[in-house]
Design a binder for these strands. Structure first.
Lengths: 204, 204
DNA sequence: CCTACCGATCGGTAGG
DNA sequence: CCTACCGATCGGTAGG
C-alpha cells in the first residue's frame, strides 16, 4: 500500500513536472516565432489546447516562463565553458573547444537558445540585472582566452573587444539560421567557425 | 503674393516632414530599447510631450513607423553595396569595402540599424515578405563575392553559407555594442573586422 | 483544467 | 494638437 502511494505521488510529481515542461517548451516556440511581448497567454493556451486561465495551475506568471528558460540556458553555457577552462591545452585549442561547447549547447536547445538571445531584455529586475551580469562574465572569460593567446604570441594583437563581440555575434545568430536537419552537424559547424575565425578566409 | 504662398506651403511641408521625422526618431529609440511590441503609442507620445491621439496627425499607424524605418535602412544598405560591386578590384578588397560600407551606413543611423535588425519581424504582410526578399538578396550578393573569391583562389574553400552568416551576424550585432563616442571610428572598426575575417586571428 | 470575470491598457477614431 | 471615447485584448484571479 505504501509502495502504491509512493508510486502514485511520484507519478503526479512527474506529471506536474512534465506538464510544466510542456508549457515552457510551447512558450519557447512562440517566443522565438513572435517575440515575448507579442505572444499572449491565450496564444500559448491555444497551442496547448487548453484555456488561458488553466496555464496558471502550472506556472505563476508569463515572465516566470522566460526566467526559467533564460537561466536554464545560462547555466548550461556556463558549465560548458568551465570544462574547457580547466583543460591543459593551448589557447587556440581552448578557444576552439569553447566555441564547440557553446554550439553543442545551442544545438541541443535551438529554440530556447534563440529566446535566450533575443528575448532576455523582457526580464524584469532583479532578474535582468543578474542575467546581464552572468552574460558579461561569460563573454569576459572568452575574452581572457583571446588575451592570453595574444600574450602567448599565438594570436595577433587584435582589438580583443571586437574579436570577442564578433565571435559572440556569430554564435548567437546561429539558432536563427542553423538547420539541424541539414548536412552539417554541430561539431562540424563549430570546427569550421573556429577555423574561419582563427585562420581567416584568405589562402596563405 | 504668389511667392509668399509658395514659401508658406514649403514651410508647412518642411514642418510636417520634420515633425514626422521627429516622431520616427523618437519611436526608433523606444523600439530599440523596449522592442516594437512592448512600446505603446502612449510611450511614444510621452517621449514627444504630446497626447497619443495627436501622433495620428503625423503617421497613419504604429506599423507605418516601423515600415518607414526598415525600408529606409534597406535602401541605404543596398546603395552602399551597389557602389562596391561595380568597382574593378579583387575579391578580398570587394569584401572589405562591402564591410566598410555596411558599417558606415550603420554608424550613421545606429538606432535605426538596431531596429532594422531586431524588429523587422513585426512587419505585417506583404511588407515582411518584401523585406525578407531584399535581405536575402543583399546577403546573397555578399555570398557571391566570397564564392568568386574562392573560385579565383583568393579565399579558402570554406562553407560559404557559414562564412556569410558569420559576417552578417557580426555586422548586425554591432549596433547593440558599438560605442560611437569611443576611441575607434567606423572605418577603423570595419577594417579591423575585415582583417580578422579575411586573415584570421592566428599569427602566421 | 474550466467558467466567469476583473481592471488595465492597447491602437486608433471622431470631432474640433 | 487636444478631449473624449471606442471595442479589443491583455495578464491574471476566484472559485470550483
Amino acid at each position: 500500500m505504501k509502495a502504491i502511494i509512493i508510486i502514485f505521488v511520484k507519478m503526479v510529481g512527474v506529471e506536474n513536472l512534465s506538464r510544466k515542461e510542456q508549457v515552457i517548451r510551447a512558450a519557447s516556440e512562440l517566443f522565438k516565432e513572435k517575440g515575448y511581448a507579442a505572444t499572449s497567454m491565450r496564444d500559448l493556451a491555444h497551442a496547448l489546447g487548453i484555456e488561458a486561465a488553466s496555464l496558471y495551475s502550472h506556472i505563476k506568471s508569463k515572465e516566470e516562463i522566460l526566467q526559467a528558460l533564460c537561466f536554464e540556458m545560462a547555466k548550461r553555457f556556463r558549465r560548458s565553458l568551465e570544462e574547457v577552462e580547466s583543460a591543459d591545452i593551448n589557447f587556440s585549442e581552448k578557444l576552439r573547444r569553447g566555441i564547440l561547447g557553446h554550439i553543442r549547447v545551442m544545438a541541443e536547445e535551438l529554440t530556447a537558445s534563440a529566446v535566450f538571445m533575443n528575448e532576455h531584455r523582457h526580464l524584469s529586475q532583479p532578474y535582468l540585472r543578474d542575467f546581464l551580469l552572468m552574460r558579461i562574465n561569460y563573454i569576459n572569460r572568452f575574452k581572457k582566452i583571446i588575451e592570453s593567446g595574444i600574450a602567448a604570441g599565438e594570436f595577433k594583437k587584435v582589438d580583443t573587444k571586437l574579436a570577442v563581440m564578433t565571435l559572440f555575434s556569430s554564435l548567437n545568430w546561429m539558432p536563427l539560421w542553423y538547420d539541424p536537419s541539414g548536412m552539417i552537424n554541430p561539431n562540424q559547424l563549430g570546427n569550421q567557425l573556429a577555423d574561419m575565425l582563427i585562420d581567416g578566409l584568405k589562402t596563405k
